[in-house]
Amino acid sequence: MNLAADKLAGSVESRFGDAVKRVPSTVEQLTYELTATKLQDVCHALRDEEPFRFEQLMDVCGVDYLGYGENEWRTRSATVTGFSRGVDRHSPQADEHAQRRFAVVYHLLSICHNQRLRLRVFCADEPPMLDSVTAIWASANWFEREAFDLYGILFSGHPDLRRILTDYGFIGNPFRKDFPLSGNVEVRYDPEKQRVIYEPVSIEPRVLVPRVIREDPRYQEAFKEASKNA
């Protein structure tokens, strides 16, 4: 971790104490996790107070952690049964009790101090809900609309929370991990009704290349190093 990032990490931790938790990383980038209730206070301070001065919010991004770290490929038994039977075709199922399923990630940039910071906030409830930061950074407006549209994350206090990227009248949150890649409906022109109609999709979801997680000792060493530093 370079010097400037260490300095920033020091001031973040001394200013916010237990409100933020550093996430270990092998890449030289600072990530902090914080609880949803503290979000607005921390963001206000990060924008206005001297050692931080994050004038710009570059990105707000929803993440669905469902199925994180899961294999689609039964590595040990697959060679006996062959490719097609080795692939797990089920898409990850939503777990009712998942407390850490949806997160929102904020990327901050300070022009005057030339530094970046990443914040991650997990939404506990169903439906997932967070405070909006549009009052702090105007650029959050569309980014939050996008996270709402694609993940169904609600932002309380947002001035205009509408869908943004999906079609008019779209149903569902397409970027959730339990939403199939092929979608649920398809459109076609019906010559009898003489209009475009929606139907359930006719294609089967399939896996071309299964998800495989392979342990590589080289990376595990690097990660241990990073966790020690954090």
Binding site: M58, D64, G69, W142, V209, V212, I213, R214, Y219
Partner: peptide, 17 residues
């Protein structure tokens, strides 16, 4: 998450902002 596919990719496009 350590797999051969990214778990999440987010593209921050300048034009969007």
């Amino acid at each position: 998450d350590g797999a051969n596919k990214p778990f999440r990719v987010k593209i921050r496009a300048a034009g969007f902002a």
